[in-house]
Design a protein around this nucleic acid. Sequence first.
DNA 1: TTGACTTTCAAACAGATGTTTTAATGTCCT
DNA 2: AGGACATTAAAACATCTGTTTGAAAGTCAA
Lengths: 282, 282
Amino acid sequence: MKRPAPPPLPSLPITEDSGSVSTPDRLVEAAGEIFAEHGFQNATVREICQRAEANIAAVNYHFGDKRGLYHAVFLYAHSCAGSDEVAGHLQASQPRAKDTSSVSKAAPAARLRLYIHALLGRILDEGRPAWHAKLMAREMVEPTGVLDDLIERSIRPHFDALQRLIRELIGPRAPDETIRLCAISIVGQCVFYRHSRPIIARLYPDLRFTAEQVRKTAEHIADFSLEGLSHYVGTRSATRARAPSAAMSSARSGSAASGAAASGVHVRGVPRVQMKRARKAG
Amino acid sequence: MKRPAPPPLPSLPITEDSGSVSTPDRLVEAAGEIFAEHGFQNATVREICQRAEANIAAVNYHFGDKRGLYHAVFLYAHSCAGSDEVAGHLQASQPRAKDTSSVSKAAPAARLRLYIHALLGRILDEGRPAWHAKLMAREMVEPTGVLDDLIERSIRPHFDALQRLIRELIGPRAPDETIRLCAISIVGQCVFYRHSRPIIARLYPDLRFTAEQVRKTAEHIADFSLEGLSHYVGTRSATRARAPSAAMSSARSGSAASGAAASGVHVRGVPRVQMKRARKAG
DNA sequence: TTGACTTTCAAACAGATGTTTTAATGTCCT
DNA sequence: AGGACATTAAAACATCTGTTTGAAAGTCAA
Protein backbone atom coordinates (compact mmCIF):
# COMPACT_ATOMS: atom_id res chain seq x y z
CA MET A 1 0.00 0.00 0.00
CA LYS A 2 2.68 2.39 0.97
CA ARG A 3 4.77 3.49 -1.94
CA PRO A 4 8.30 4.66 -1.19
CA ALA A 5 9.40 8.11 -2.15
CA PRO A 6 12.82 7.92 -3.79
CA PRO A 7 15.00 11.02 -3.71
CA PRO A 8 13.46 13.55 -6.08
CA LEU A 9 16.46 13.91 -8.31
CA PRO A 10 19.52 12.25 -6.81
CA SER A 11 22.84 13.53 -7.93
CA LEU A 12 24.31 10.70 -9.91
CA PRO A 13 23.50 7.30 -8.49
CA ILE A 14 25.64 5.27 -10.81
CA THR A 15 25.19 1.60 -10.31
CA GLU A 16 27.64 0.49 -7.70
CA ASP A 17 27.47 -3.00 -9.08
CA SER A 18 29.34 -2.37 -12.28
CA GLY A 19 28.72 -5.89 -13.46
CA SER A 20 24.94 -5.75 -13.92
CA VAL A 21 23.09 -2.67 -15.01
CA SER A 22 20.28 -1.37 -12.85
CA THR A 23 16.71 -1.59 -13.97
CA PRO A 24 16.20 2.14 -14.62
CA ASP A 25 19.32 2.17 -16.75
CA ARG A 26 18.19 -0.81 -18.77
CA LEU A 27 14.81 0.82 -19.17
CA VAL A 28 16.27 4.04 -20.45
CA GLU A 29 18.49 2.26 -22.92
CA ALA A 30 15.72 0.06 -24.22
CA ALA A 31 13.29 2.94 -24.30
CA GLY A 32 15.73 5.03 -26.28
CA GLU A 33 15.89 2.49 -29.04
CA ILE A 34 12.20 1.77 -29.10
CA PHE A 35 11.07 5.37 -28.83
CA ALA A 36 13.43 6.27 -31.62
CA GLU A 37 12.17 3.42 -33.72
CA HIS A 38 8.44 3.66 -33.16
CA GLY A 39 7.84 7.11 -31.78
CA PHE A 40 6.36 8.01 -28.45
CA GLN A 41 2.82 6.88 -29.07
CA ASN A 42 3.53 3.72 -30.99
CA ALA A 43 6.10 2.47 -28.56
CA THR A 44 4.54 0.31 -25.88
CA VAL A 45 5.83 0.04 -22.38
CA ARG A 46 5.39 -3.69 -22.65
CA GLU A 47 7.86 -3.90 -25.47
CA ILE A 48 10.25 -1.60 -23.66
CA CYS A 49 10.08 -3.64 -20.51
CA GLN A 50 10.46 -6.83 -22.48
CA ARG A 51 13.64 -5.61 -24.13
CA ALA A 52 14.90 -4.25 -20.83
CA GLU A 53 14.03 -7.53 -19.14
CA ALA A 54 12.05 -5.66 -16.53
CA ASN A 55 8.57 -5.93 -15.20
CA ILE A 56 5.81 -3.84 -16.70
CA ALA A 57 5.32 -1.94 -13.48
CA ALA A 58 8.97 -0.89 -13.47
CA VAL A 59 8.30 2.04 -15.77
CA ASN A 60 5.69 3.56 -13.50
CA TYR A 61 7.67 2.77 -10.40
CA HIS A 62 10.91 4.38 -11.51
CA PHE A 63 9.69 7.10 -13.82
CA GLY A 64 6.15 7.79 -12.79
CA ASP A 65 4.66 7.18 -16.17
CA LYS A 66 5.52 6.59 -19.78
CA ARG A 67 6.12 10.25 -20.37
CA GLY A 68 8.53 10.41 -17.48
CA LEU A 69 10.56 7.66 -19.05
CA TYR A 70 10.52 9.53 -22.32
CA HIS A 71 11.77 12.62 -20.57
CA ALA A 72 14.51 10.64 -18.86
CA VAL A 73 15.55 9.26 -22.21
CA PHE A 74 15.97 12.77 -23.52
CA LEU A 75 17.93 13.86 -20.50
CA TYR A 76 20.16 10.83 -20.86
CA ALA A 77 20.64 11.37 -24.56
CA HIS A 78 21.54 14.96 -23.96
CA SER A 79 23.84 14.29 -21.07
CA CYS A 80 25.84 11.36 -22.37
CA ALA A 81 27.17 12.18 -25.79
CA GLY A 82 25.04 15.17 -26.50
CA SER A 83 25.43 17.65 -29.22
CA ASP A 84 28.22 19.49 -27.50
CA GLU A 85 30.73 17.35 -29.27
CA VAL A 86 29.30 18.20 -32.64
CA ALA A 87 28.88 21.85 -31.83
CA GLY A 88 32.41 21.95 -30.54
CA HIS A 89 33.63 22.38 -34.06
CA LEU A 90 31.70 25.57 -34.43
CA GLN A 91 33.70 27.71 -32.09
CA ALA A 92 37.13 28.81 -32.95
CA SER A 93 39.65 27.01 -30.82
CA GLN A 94 41.82 30.04 -30.32
CA PRO A 95 40.89 33.69 -30.50
CA ARG A 96 42.47 34.85 -33.69
CA ALA A 97 42.99 38.34 -34.88
CA LYS A 98 39.65 40.10 -34.79
CA ASP A 99 40.16 42.11 -37.94
CA THR A 100 38.63 40.01 -40.64
CA SER A 101 41.32 39.94 -43.21
CA SER A 102 40.86 37.67 -46.15
CA VAL A 103 43.52 35.28 -45.00
CA SER A 104 41.78 34.37 -41.74
CA LYS A 105 38.73 33.16 -43.59
CA ALA A 106 40.20 29.75 -44.11
CA ALA A 107 39.64 28.82 -40.52
CA PRO A 108 35.87 29.30 -40.45
CA ALA A 109 35.47 27.28 -43.63
CA ALA A 110 37.48 24.46 -42.15
CA ARG A 111 35.41 24.62 -39.01
CA LEU A 112 32.23 24.41 -41.05
CA ARG A 113 33.63 21.32 -42.73
CA LEU A 114 34.40 19.71 -39.42
CA TYR A 115 30.97 20.58 -38.12
CA ILE A 116 29.21 19.07 -41.11
CA HIS A 117 31.29 15.94 -40.88
CA ALA A 118 30.53 15.53 -37.20
CA LEU A 119 26.83 16.25 -37.59
CA LEU A 120 26.33 13.94 -40.54
CA GLY A 121 28.44 11.26 -38.96
CA ARG A 122 26.23 11.37 -35.92
CA ILE A 123 23.07 11.47 -37.96
CA LEU A 124 23.98 8.50 -40.12
CA ASP A 125 25.57 6.47 -37.38
CA GLU A 126 23.65 3.30 -36.81
CA GLY A 127 25.39 2.57 -33.56
CA ARG A 128 23.63 2.19 -30.29
CA PRO A 129 23.98 5.60 -28.68
CA ALA A 130 22.81 7.25 -31.85
CA TRP A 131 19.11 7.05 -31.28
CA HIS A 132 18.90 10.49 -29.75
CA ALA A 133 19.29 11.93 -33.23
CA LYS A 134 16.28 9.91 -34.28
CA LEU A 135 14.45 11.07 -31.20
CA MET A 136 15.16 14.65 -32.14
CA ALA A 137 13.95 13.97 -35.65
CA ARG A 138 10.74 12.54 -34.28
CA GLU A 139 10.27 15.42 -31.93
CA MET A 140 10.51 17.76 -34.85
CA VAL A 141 7.76 16.07 -36.78
CA GLU A 142 5.60 15.38 -33.80
CA PRO A 143 6.46 17.50 -30.78
CA THR A 144 5.50 15.98 -27.47
CA GLY A 145 6.46 18.95 -25.37
CA VAL A 146 9.60 17.34 -24.01
CA LEU A 147 11.47 19.15 -26.71
CA ASP A 148 10.70 22.50 -25.17
CA ASP A 149 13.19 22.03 -22.39
CA LEU A 150 15.93 20.79 -24.62
CA ILE A 151 15.51 23.17 -27.50
CA GLU A 152 16.78 26.13 -25.54
CA ARG A 153 19.56 24.16 -23.98
CA SER A 154 20.89 22.38 -27.02
CA ILE A 155 19.42 23.29 -30.36
CA ARG A 156 19.43 27.05 -29.99
CA PRO A 157 23.08 27.32 -28.92
CA HIS A 158 23.80 24.93 -31.75
CA PHE A 159 22.09 27.16 -34.25
CA ASP A 160 23.49 30.34 -32.79
CA ALA A 161 27.01 29.03 -33.04
CA LEU A 162 26.42 27.92 -36.59
CA GLN A 163 25.03 31.30 -37.48
CA ARG A 164 28.00 33.08 -35.97
CA LEU A 165 30.23 30.89 -38.06
CA ILE A 166 28.24 31.68 -41.17
CA ARG A 167 28.53 35.35 -40.38
CA GLU A 168 32.25 34.93 -40.21
CA LEU A 169 32.10 33.38 -43.63
CA ILE A 170 29.90 35.78 -45.52
CA GLY A 171 30.67 38.98 -43.73
CA PRO A 172 29.50 40.86 -40.63
CA ARG A 173 27.19 43.13 -42.57
CA ALA A 174 24.98 40.40 -43.97
CA PRO A 175 21.38 40.69 -42.77
CA ASP A 176 20.13 38.28 -40.15
CA GLU A 177 17.66 36.84 -42.59
CA THR A 178 20.44 35.75 -44.90
CA ILE A 179 22.26 34.13 -42.02
CA ARG A 180 19.15 32.29 -41.00
CA LEU A 181 18.41 31.07 -44.50
CA CYS A 182 21.93 29.80 -44.93
CA ALA A 183 21.97 28.04 -41.58
CA ILE A 184 18.75 26.27 -42.40
CA SER A 185 20.07 25.31 -45.80
CA ILE A 186 23.13 23.68 -44.30
CA VAL A 187 21.37 21.88 -41.50
CA GLY A 188 18.56 20.89 -43.81
CA GLN A 189 20.90 19.08 -46.14
CA CYS A 190 22.25 17.02 -43.26
CA VAL A 191 19.00 16.36 -41.49
CA PHE A 192 17.40 15.12 -44.68
CA TYR A 193 19.50 12.00 -44.42
CA ARG A 194 17.82 11.30 -41.13
CA HIS A 195 14.27 12.32 -41.87
CA SER A 196 13.99 10.86 -45.32
CA ARG A 197 16.07 7.80 -44.82
CA PRO A 198 13.39 5.36 -46.00
CA ILE A 199 12.94 7.36 -49.16
CA ILE A 200 16.64 7.45 -49.84
CA ALA A 201 16.93 3.75 -49.17
CA ARG A 202 14.25 3.02 -51.72
CA LEU A 203 15.43 5.47 -54.32
CA TYR A 204 18.99 4.18 -54.11
CA PRO A 205 18.75 0.59 -52.89
CA ASP A 206 22.41 -0.09 -53.41
CA LEU A 207 23.52 2.89 -51.38
CA ARG A 208 25.22 1.87 -48.17
CA PHE A 209 26.26 4.47 -45.68
CA THR A 210 29.67 3.19 -44.83
CA ALA A 211 32.13 5.42 -43.06
CA GLU A 212 33.66 6.27 -46.39
CA GLN A 213 30.28 7.05 -47.90
CA VAL A 214 29.40 9.27 -44.97
CA ARG A 215 32.67 11.07 -45.43
CA LYS A 216 32.04 11.66 -49.11
CA THR A 217 28.53 12.84 -48.43
CA ALA A 218 29.69 15.27 -45.79
CA GLU A 219 32.39 16.49 -48.10
CA HIS A 220 29.79 17.18 -50.75
CA ILE A 221 27.56 19.07 -48.34
CA ALA A 222 30.53 21.15 -47.27
CA ASP A 223 31.53 21.88 -50.86
CA PHE A 224 28.00 22.60 -51.91
CA SER A 225 27.30 24.81 -48.93
CA LEU A 226 30.52 26.77 -49.01
CA GLU A 227 29.87 27.46 -52.65
CA GLY A 228 26.31 28.42 -51.83
CA LEU A 229 27.50 30.73 -49.08
CA SER A 230 29.78 32.43 -51.52
CA HIS A 231 26.68 33.83 -53.15
CA TYR A 232 26.26 36.13 -50.18
CA VAL A 233 29.83 37.03 -49.47
CA GLY A 234 30.07 40.71 -48.83
CA THR A 235 26.34 41.29 -49.11
CA ARG A 236 24.76 44.01 -47.07
CA SER A 237 21.10 43.76 -47.98
CA ALA A 238 19.01 41.41 -50.06
CA THR A 239 20.74 42.56 -53.21
CA ARG A 240 22.94 39.95 -54.73
CA ALA A 241 26.63 40.60 -54.81
CA ARG A 242 28.98 38.19 -56.41
CA ALA A 243 32.40 37.39 -55.11
CA PRO A 244 33.60 34.05 -56.37
CA SER A 245 35.27 33.32 -53.10
CA ALA A 246 38.54 31.75 -54.01
CA ALA A 247 39.53 31.87 -50.36
CA MET A 248 36.57 29.85 -49.09
CA SER A 249 36.59 27.08 -51.59
CA SER A 250 40.30 26.61 -51.27
CA ALA A 251 39.87 26.04 -47.59
CA ARG A 252 39.10 22.37 -47.84
CA SER A 253 41.04 21.24 -44.88
CA GLY A 254 41.62 17.73 -46.01
CA SER A 255 39.59 14.62 -45.45
CA ALA A 256 41.80 13.07 -42.86
CA ALA A 257 40.78 15.32 -40.02
CA SER A 258 37.19 15.25 -41.18
CA GLY A 259 37.10 11.50 -41.25
CA ALA A 260 38.45 11.37 -37.76
CA ALA A 261 35.73 13.71 -36.64
CA ALA A 262 33.08 11.62 -38.31
CA SER A 263 34.14 8.56 -36.42
CA GLY A 264 34.68 8.46 -32.70
CA VAL A 265 31.08 9.21 -32.00
CA HIS A 266 30.47 6.51 -29.51
CA VAL A 267 30.92 7.84 -26.03
CA ARG A 268 30.78 5.37 -23.26
CA GLY A 269 30.98 5.40 -19.53
CA VAL A 270 29.56 8.87 -19.19
CA PRO A 271 27.59 9.33 -16.00
CA ARG A 272 24.01 9.60 -16.92
CA VAL A 273 21.20 11.40 -15.29
CA GLN A 274 19.03 9.02 -13.44
CA MET A 275 15.56 10.10 -12.78
CA LYS A 276 13.28 8.56 -10.26
CA ARG A 277 9.79 9.54 -9.59
CA ALA A 278 7.34 8.17 -7.15
CA ARG A 279 3.63 8.06 -7.58
CA LYS A 280 1.91 11.32 -8.14
CA ALA A 281 -0.27 11.45 -5.06
CA GLY A 282 -0.04 8.65 -2.59
CA MET B 1 -26.60 -9.19 -42.04
CA LYS B 2 -25.98 -9.08 -45.72
CA ARG B 3 -23.33 -6.61 -46.64
CA PRO B 4 -23.41 -5.19 -50.15
CA ALA B 5 -20.45 -5.66 -52.39
CA PRO B 6 -19.70 -2.35 -54.08
CA PRO B 7 -17.82 -2.39 -57.37
CA PRO B 8 -14.17 -3.25 -56.61
CA LEU B 9 -12.73 -0.07 -58.03
CA PRO B 10 -15.32 1.89 -59.95
CA SER B 11 -14.08 4.14 -62.65
CA LEU B 12 -14.78 7.60 -61.36
CA PRO B 13 -18.04 7.84 -59.45
CA ILE B 14 -18.08 11.57 -58.99
CA THR B 15 -20.89 12.72 -56.80
CA GLU B 16 -23.82 13.40 -59.03
CA ASP B 17 -25.20 15.76 -56.47
CA SER B 18 -22.75 18.57 -56.87
CA GLY B 19 -24.29 20.47 -54.01
CA SER B 20 -23.41 18.16 -51.11
CA VAL B 21 -20.29 16.05 -50.94
CA SER B 22 -20.62 12.34 -50.52
CA THR B 23 -19.60 10.66 -47.32
CA PRO B 24 -16.49 8.91 -48.68
CA ASP B 25 -15.28 12.20 -50.06
CA ARG B 26 -15.82 13.97 -46.78
CA LEU B 27 -14.05 11.14 -45.04
CA VAL B 28 -11.05 11.33 -47.31
CA GLU B 29 -10.80 15.06 -46.92
CA ALA B 30 -11.11 14.97 -43.17
CA ALA B 31 -8.78 12.01 -42.91
CA GLY B 32 -6.19 13.80 -44.99
CA GLU B 33 -6.03 16.66 -42.57
CA ILE B 34 -6.09 14.54 -39.47
CA PHE B 35 -3.67 11.93 -40.72
CA ALA B 36 -1.31 14.69 -41.75
CA GLU B 37 -1.66 16.35 -38.40
CA HIS B 38 -1.50 13.40 -36.05
CA GLY B 39 0.01 10.59 -38.07
CA PHE B 40 -1.57 7.29 -38.87
CA GLN B 41 -1.54 5.77 -35.43
CA ASN B 42 -2.45 8.82 -33.42
CA ALA B 43 -5.33 9.77 -35.65
CA THR B 44 -8.57 8.23 -34.47
CA VAL B 45 -11.39 7.25 -36.75
CA ARG B 46 -13.73 8.85 -34.30
CA GLU B 47 -12.15 12.23 -34.79
CA ILE B 48 -12.07 11.73 -38.53
CA CYS B 49 -15.73 10.80 -38.64
CA GLN B 50 -16.58 13.68 -36.36
CA ARG B 51 -14.91 16.18 -38.63
CA ALA B 52 -16.41 14.55 -41.68
CA GLU B 53 -19.81 14.55 -39.98
CA ALA B 54 -20.13 10.87 -40.65
CA ASN B 55 -20.88 7.88 -38.53
CA ILE B 56 -18.07 5.85 -37.05
CA ALA B 57 -19.00 2.81 -39.07
CA ALA B 58 -18.67 4.76 -42.29
CA VAL B 59 -14.94 4.23 -42.40
CA ASN B 60 -15.20 0.47 -42.29
CA TYR B 61 -18.15 0.44 -44.61
CA HIS B 62 -16.60 2.50 -47.36
CA PHE B 63 -12.92 1.69 -46.97
CA GLY B 64 -12.80 -1.62 -45.18
CA ASP B 65 -10.67 -0.42 -42.34
CA LYS B 66 -8.62 2.49 -41.15
CA ARG B 67 -5.68 1.49 -43.30
CA GLY B 68 -7.90 1.40 -46.38
CA LEU B 69 -8.92 4.96 -45.68
CA TYR B 70 -5.29 5.92 -45.29
CA HIS B 71 -4.51 4.32 -48.61
CA ALA B 72 -7.40 6.11 -50.26
CA VAL B 73 -6.13 9.38 -48.86
CA PHE B 74 -2.80 8.77 -50.52
CA LEU B 75 -4.40 7.88 -53.82
CA TYR B 76 -6.52 10.97 -53.63
CA ALA B 77 -3.60 13.18 -52.73
CA HIS B 78 -1.64 11.79 -55.62
CA SER B 79 -4.44 12.02 -58.11
CA CYS B 80 -5.81 15.45 -57.40
CA ALA B 81 -3.08 18.01 -57.35
CA GLY B 82 -0.27 15.62 -56.89
CA SER B 83 3.31 16.30 -57.50
CA ASP B 84 2.89 16.44 -61.23
CA GLU B 85 2.28 20.13 -61.04
CA VAL B 86 5.44 20.70 -59.09
CA ALA B 87 7.45 18.34 -61.22
CA GLY B 88 6.10 19.98 -64.31
CA HIS B 89 8.70 22.66 -63.97
CA LEU B 90 11.44 20.11 -64.25
CA GLN B 91 10.97 19.17 -67.85
CA ALA B 92 11.82 21.54 -70.61
CA SER B 93 8.70 22.83 -72.23
CA GLN B 94 10.07 22.56 -75.72
CA PRO B 95 12.78 20.30 -77.04
CA ARG B 96 15.65 22.62 -77.52
CA ALA B 97 18.81 22.01 -79.39
CA LYS B 98 20.35 18.88 -77.98
CA ASP B 99 23.94 20.05 -78.23
CA THR B 100 24.58 21.61 -74.87
CA SER B 101 26.04 24.91 -75.76
CA SER B 102 26.73 27.35 -73.02
CA VAL B 103 23.95 29.67 -74.05
CA SER B 104 21.15 27.17 -73.48
CA LYS B 105 22.11 26.73 -69.88
CA ALA B 106 19.99 29.60 -68.74
CA ALA B 107 16.81 27.64 -69.24
CA PRO B 108 17.62 24.79 -66.86
CA ALA B 109 18.54 27.23 -64.11
CA ALA B 110 15.24 29.01 -64.54
CA ARG B 111 13.43 25.71 -64.45
CA LEU B 112 15.18 24.81 -61.22
CA ARG B 113 14.05 28.09 -59.77
CA LEU B 114 10.49 27.45 -60.75
CA TYR B 115 10.67 23.95 -59.34
CA ILE B 116 12.00 25.14 -55.99
CA HIS B 117 9.37 27.83 -55.79
CA ALA B 118 6.60 25.37 -56.51
CA LEU B 119 7.89 22.74 -54.13
CA LEU B 120 8.48 25.10 -51.25
CA GLY B 121 5.20 26.85 -51.87
CA ARG B 122 3.44 23.55 -51.62
CA ILE B 123 5.41 22.50 -48.59
CA LEU B 124 4.78 25.68 -46.66
CA ASP B 125 1.22 26.15 -47.78
CA GLU B 126 -1.14 25.84 -44.87
CA GLY B 127 -4.13 25.57 -47.11
CA ARG B 128 -6.44 22.66 -47.18
CA PRO B 129 -5.26 20.52 -50.09
CA ALA B 130 -1.72 20.76 -48.87
CA TRP B 131 -1.75 17.94 -46.37
CA HIS B 132 -0.38 15.39 -48.78
CA ALA B 133 3.03 16.99 -48.39
CA LYS B 134 2.73 16.46 -44.65
CA LEU B 135 1.59 12.92 -45.26
CA MET B 136 4.66 12.31 -47.34
CA ALA B 137 6.81 13.78 -44.63
CA ARG B 138 5.25 11.48 -42.08
CA GLU B 139 5.64 8.49 -44.31
CA MET B 140 9.31 9.27 -44.58
CA VAL B 141 9.85 9.26 -40.85
CA GLU B 142 7.51 6.41 -40.15
CA PRO B 143 6.75 4.29 -43.19
CA THR B 144 3.48 2.45 -43.03
CA GLY B 145 3.95 0.51 -46.23
CA VAL B 146 1.48 2.59 -48.19
CA LEU B 147 4.41 4.60 -49.39
CA ASP B 148 5.77 1.68 -51.35
CA ASP B 149 3.16 1.97 -54.03
CA LEU B 150 3.47 5.67 -54.39
CA ILE B 151 7.19 6.00 -54.24
CA GLU B 152 7.72 4.43 -57.61
CA ARG B 153 4.84 6.29 -59.13
CA SER B 154 5.53 9.75 -57.81
CA ILE B 155 8.72 10.29 -55.90
CA ARG B 156 11.06 8.42 -58.19
CA PRO B 157 9.95 10.19 -61.37
CA HIS B 158 10.19 13.38 -59.36
CA PHE B 159 13.73 12.66 -58.38
CA ASP B 160 14.72 11.37 -61.80
CA ALA B 161 13.47 14.52 -63.45
CA LEU B 162 15.29 16.66 -60.93
CA GLN B 163 18.46 14.71 -61.49
CA ARG B 164 18.19 15.11 -65.26
CA LEU B 165 17.83 18.81 -64.73
CA ILE B 166 20.86 18.87 -62.48
CA ARG B 167 22.80 16.99 -65.10
CA GLU B 168 21.85 19.63 -67.60
CA LEU B 169 23.22 22.19 -65.20
CA ILE B 170 26.53 20.69 -64.24
CA GLY B 171 27.34 18.76 -67.37
CA PRO B 172 26.63 15.34 -68.87
CA ARG B 173 29.89 13.84 -67.71
CA ALA B 174 29.32 14.35 -64.02
CA PRO B 175 29.20 11.07 -62.11
CA ASP B 176 25.86 9.76 -60.92
CA GLU B 177 26.96 10.12 -57.34
CA THR B 178 27.44 13.83 -57.73
CA ILE B 179 24.03 14.16 -59.30
CA ARG B 180 22.47 12.25 -56.43
CA LEU B 181 24.24 14.30 -53.79
CA CYS B 182 23.15 17.55 -55.38
CA ALA B 183 19.56 16.42 -55.79
CA ILE B 184 19.39 15.46 -52.14
CA SER B 185 20.94 18.75 -51.14
CA ILE B 186 18.31 20.71 -52.99
CA VAL B 187 15.34 18.70 -51.86
CA GLY B 188 16.71 18.53 -48.33
CA GLN B 189 16.77 22.28 -48.00
CA CYS B 190 13.11 22.48 -48.98
CA VAL B 191 11.87 19.52 -47.01
CA PHE B 192 13.51 20.81 -43.87
CA TYR B 193 10.87 23.48 -43.67
CA ARG B 194 8.29 20.78 -43.42
CA HIS B 195 10.02 18.28 -41.19
CA SER B 196 11.51 20.70 -38.74
CA ARG B 197 8.76 23.21 -38.67
CA PRO B 198 8.30 23.14 -34.90
CA ILE B 199 11.98 23.72 -34.42
CA ILE B 200 12.01 26.63 -36.82
CA ALA B 201 8.95 28.09 -35.17
CA ARG B 202 10.66 28.00 -31.79
CA LEU B 203 14.01 29.23 -32.99
CA TYR B 204 12.46 32.13 -34.85
CA PRO B 205 9.17 32.88 -33.12
CA ASP B 206 8.53 36.00 -35.13
CA LEU B 207 8.96 34.29 -38.45
CA ARG B 208 5.73 34.07 -40.40
CA PHE B 209 5.60 32.21 -43.65
CA THR B 210 3.62 34.64 -45.67
CA ALA B 211 3.54 34.32 -49.42
CA GLU B 212 6.27 36.90 -49.64
CA GLN B 213 8.37 35.10 -47.07
CA VAL B 214 7.95 31.82 -48.92
CA ARG B 215 9.04 33.53 -52.08
CA LYS B 216 12.15 34.94 -50.47
CA THR B 217 12.99 31.61 -48.92
CA ALA B 218 12.61 29.82 -52.22
CA GLU B 219 14.70 32.46 -53.89
CA HIS B 220 17.44 31.88 -51.36
CA ILE B 221 17.35 28.12 -51.85
CA ALA B 222 17.59 28.64 -55.58
CA ASP B 223 20.50 31.05 -55.25
CA PHE B 224 22.24 28.89 -52.71
CA SER B 225 21.76 25.73 -54.71
CA LEU B 226 22.69 27.13 -58.08
CA GLU B 227 25.84 28.45 -56.53
CA GLY B 228 26.44 25.11 -54.89
CA LEU B 229 25.92 23.33 -58.17
CA SER B 230 28.49 25.53 -59.77
CA HIS B 231 31.05 23.71 -57.69
CA TYR B 232 30.60 20.70 -59.92
CA VAL B 233 30.20 22.35 -63.28
CA GLY B 234 32.26 20.51 -65.82
CA THR B 235 33.40 17.86 -63.38
CA ARG B 236 34.04 14.40 -64.64
CA SER B 237 35.07 12.54 -61.53
CA ALA B 238 35.22 13.34 -57.86
CA THR B 239 38.02 15.80 -58.43
CA ARG B 240 37.07 19.36 -57.83
CA ALA B 241 36.95 21.66 -60.78
CA ARG B 242 36.08 25.28 -60.42
CA ALA B 243 34.09 27.23 -62.91
CA PRO B 244 32.47 30.23 -61.33
CA SER B 245 29.42 29.84 -63.53
CA ALA B 246 28.47 33.28 -64.62
CA ALA B 247 25.81 31.81 -66.84
CA MET B 248 23.98 29.98 -64.10
CA SER B 249 23.82 32.71 -61.56
CA SER B 250 22.68 35.21 -64.10
CA ALA B 251 19.75 33.03 -64.92
CA ARG B 252 17.56 34.29 -62.14
CA SER B 253 14.35 34.44 -64.04
CA GLY B 254 12.71 37.07 -61.95
CA SER B 255 10.46 36.77 -58.97
CA ALA B 256 7.22 37.43 -60.75
CA ALA B 257 6.98 34.11 -62.49
CA SER B 258 8.25 32.36 -59.42
CA GLY B 259 5.69 33.97 -57.21
CA ALA B 260 2.96 32.95 -59.57
CA ALA B 261 4.20 29.42 -59.43
CA ALA B 262 4.24 29.46 -55.67
CA SER B 263 0.61 30.42 -55.54
CA GLY B 264 -2.05 28.65 -57.53
CA VAL B 265 -1.53 25.46 -55.62
CA HIS B 266 -5.13 24.83 -54.81
CA VAL B 267 -6.57 22.56 -57.40
CA ARG B 268 -10.24 21.84 -57.20
CA GLY B 269 -12.76 19.89 -59.08
CA VAL B 270 -10.34 17.20 -60.08
CA PRO B 271 -11.96 13.80 -60.27
CA ARG B 272 -10.66 11.84 -57.40
CA VAL B 273 -10.20 8.18 -57.01
CA GLN B 274 -12.94 6.76 -54.94
CA MET B 275 -12.25 3.54 -53.26
CA LYS B 276 -14.86 1.31 -51.84
CA ARG B 277 -14.24 -1.87 -50.06
CA ALA B 278 -16.66 -4.26 -48.48
CA ARG B 279 -15.96 -6.42 -45.53
CA LYS B 280 -13.04 -8.75 -45.78
CA ALA B 281 -14.75 -12.08 -45.37
CA GLY B 282 -18.42 -11.98 -44.87
C1' DT C 1 17.77 -12.44 13.15
C1' DT C 2 14.75 -8.60 13.07
C1' DG C 3 12.71 -4.91 10.83
C1' DA C 4 12.31 -1.12 7.87
C1' DC C 5 12.88 -0.03 3.34
C1' DT C 6 13.37 -0.79 -1.64
C1' DT C 7 12.50 -3.27 -5.61
C1' DT C 8 10.23 -6.82 -8.41
C1' DC C 9 6.40 -9.48 -9.81
C1' DA C 10 1.97 -11.28 -11.69
C1' DA C 11 -2.50 -9.98 -12.07
C1' DA C 12 -6.10 -6.98 -12.66
C1' DC C 13 -8.16 -2.40 -13.83
C1' DA C 14 -9.72 1.42 -16.69
C1' DG C 15 -9.76 3.87 -20.66
C1' DA C 16 -9.33 4.40 -25.52
C1' DT C 17 -9.88 2.66 -30.08
C1' DG C 18 -10.70 -0.15 -34.31
C1' DT C 19 -14.18 -2.95 -35.63
C1' DT C 20 -18.59 -5.34 -35.96
C1' DT C 21 -23.40 -5.94 -35.43
C1' DT C 22 -28.20 -4.94 -35.91
C1' DA C 23 -31.67 -2.04 -37.07
C1' DA C 24 -33.33 2.07 -39.31
C1' DT C 25 -33.42 5.24 -43.13
C1' DG C 26 -32.88 6.70 -47.71
C1' DT C 27 -32.91 5.91 -52.85
C1' DC C 28 -34.17 4.35 -57.15
C1' DC C 29 -36.55 1.31 -60.45
C1' DT C 30 -40.92 -1.13 -61.77
C1' DA D 1 -46.85 1.57 -53.39
C1' DG D 2 -43.53 -2.09 -53.18
C1' DG D 3 -39.23 -4.01 -53.02
C1' DA D 4 -34.35 -4.45 -53.70
C1' DC D 5 -30.45 -2.16 -52.73
C1' DA D 6 -27.25 1.30 -50.68
C1' DT D 7 -26.25 3.99 -46.91
C1' DT D 8 -26.46 5.67 -42.17
C1' DA D 9 -27.01 5.23 -37.29
C1' DA D 10 -26.32 3.82 -32.37
C1' DA D 11 -24.66 0.56 -29.55
C1' DA D 12 -21.92 -3.15 -28.29
C1' DC D 13 -17.69 -5.91 -28.83
C1' DA D 14 -12.83 -7.14 -28.61
C1' DT D 15 -8.41 -5.81 -28.14
C1' DC D 16 -4.62 -3.11 -26.96
C1' DT D 17 -2.28 -0.26 -23.64
C1' DG D 18 -0.97 2.64 -19.70
C1' DT D 19 -1.54 2.21 -15.11
C1' DT D 20 -2.41 0.46 -10.49
C1' DT D 21 -2.59 -2.95 -6.91
C1' DG D 22 -1.13 -5.96 -3.21
C1' DA D 23 1.92 -9.23 -2.12
C1' DA D 24 6.45 -11.49 -2.51
C1' DA D 25 11.34 -11.06 -2.66
C1' DG D 26 15.50 -8.66 -1.99
C1' DT D 27 18.75 -5.39 0.60
C1' DC D 28 21.00 -3.58 4.35
C1' DA D 29 21.83 -1.69 8.89
C1' DA D 30 21.34 -2.37 13.91
